[in-house]
Simulated assay, not measured.
Amino acid sequence: MIDLLTYHKKKGDEVASFRYPISKLYYYIVMIGAGGTGGYTIQRLSKMMNAFDSVKSFLLIADPDSVEEKNLLRQPFIQQDIGLKKADVLAKRYGATYGLKIGSYSDSYIESVESLEQLFSLTDFRHEHGQYIQKVLIGAVDNDFSRSVMNEYFNMTDDLIYIDAGIEGVFVPSGNKPTQEWTPDEMLDHMESGYSGQVVVGVKKNGQVVLPALHSVYPIDEKDAIPPSHNCGIEPYQPQRMIANEMAAFQISTIVNELFSSNSIYIHYANFNARAGSCRPIYAEDSYIPSSHNEAHLQPS
């Protein structure tokens, strides 16, 4: 495991770039996307934030989409939510349920590193002696434009945990054919697709990459350059399965659980299959990039 607190301790004759010795982390979490994967992740994270009452944390949800009737099939919304902003609904619902202050931003899509940085800027009143505000970015989006923005932010910032979840879409034959006109091969592809996915954890501390982020593991498709704000109302060609969304949310939750319980990163990335309920992790210690000081930040696993 990678122990985050060791990056805030004395380095020989040097001291890390902070004003006072750090003994605890404040997890400032920004979630981009409040649909299938994001919505189920918010359910789990808010419950976890309540359960780990000794760990200080804050959750801000960013998504300008409104709840539509079709979302009720696989996203955590109810009939009364239709027409309301997803981020606002979930922040209010789970904040009230667990007595948490959960923020929401639903004015626009996050399409630049500047707007993403703004979401991490509400920190003034969170500073206290012996505490470091650890930024955590969670991406639960379905387009590579947004992932490119988050990856660029990872590259530009000196200190960040970037967790990205992606799932395979369900195969649907082109042409909007009714199911009775599908070929046996098309039906088989449809039934077997939409279950796999991955969650990747990138870590940057003191300006250096500790664990490579998403683009280094699964290269982002630069051709998917249409900002989500220009894509409104277009039906996704490949819908998603609720069970895949829930398993992606579970994988994200295991990462945050380790952060809250031990201030550590246990896995670098995990590939999963929701149909089989299986997961293949790559452990952080196997991908760890030592700092220029050749310090060991690993705990025995």
Rank of each mutant, 00 (worst) to 15 (best):
residue 2 I to F: 05
residue 2 I to W: 03
residue 4 L to E: 08
residue 6 T to I: 00
residue 13 D to T: 05
residue 14 E to Q: 06
residue 18 F to I: 12
residue 22 I to V: 15
residue 37 T to Y: 02
residue 37 T to Q: 02
residue 37 T to C: 09
residue 38 G to F: 12
residue 45 L to A: 04
residue 62 A to I: 09
residue 65 D to R: 02
residue 66 S to G: 00
residue 70 K to Q: 10
residue 84 L to D: 09
residue 91 A to D: 07
residue 94 Y to M: 02
residue 103 G to N: 07
residue 106 S to G: 06
residue 115 S to P: 01
residue 116 L to K: 09
residue 118 Q to D: 13
residue 126 R to P: 00
residue 130 G to M: 08
residue 137 L to H: 08
residue 139 G to I: 03
residue 144 D to S: 06
residue 147 R to M: 06
residue 149 V to Q: 05
residue 150 M to V: 03
residue 152 E to C: 08
residue 154 F to A: 10
residue 157 T to N: 14
residue 157 T to C: 15
residue 164 D to T: 05
residue 166 G to T: 08
residue 169 G to R: 09
residue 171 F to P: 00
residue 176 N to R: 08
residue 178 P to E: 06
residue 178 P to H: 03
residue 180 Q to T: 03
residue 180 Q to F: 10
residue 187 M to E: 15
residue 187 M to P: 00
residue 191 M to G: 05
residue 192 E to A: 09
residue 195 Y to H: 14
residue 196 S to D: 14
residue 202 G to H: 05
residue 206 N to W: 07
residue 211 L to P: 12
residue 214 L to N: 12
residue 215 H to W: 08
residue 218 Y to D: 14
residue 219 P to M: 13
residue 219 P to K: 14
residue 228 P to C: 08
residue 229 S to N: 12
residue 231 N to K: 13
residue 231 N to T: 01
residue 232 C to I: 15
residue 233 G to C: 13
residue 238 Q to R: 14
residue 242 M to S: 07
residue 245 N to M: 00
residue 246 E to Y: 01
residue 247 M to Q: 09
residue 253 S to C: 07
residue 253 S to V: 03
residue 261 S to Y: 08
residue 263 N to A: 10
residue 263 N to G: 03
residue 264 S to F: 03
residue 265 I to T: 04
residue 274 A to D: 06
residue 275 R to H: 12
residue 275 R to Q: 12
residue 277 G to C: 02
residue 278 S to E: 05
residue 278 S to W: 01
residue 283 Y to N: 02
residue 284 A to H: 04
residue 288 Y to P: 02
residue 295 E to F: 11
residue 296 A to D: 14
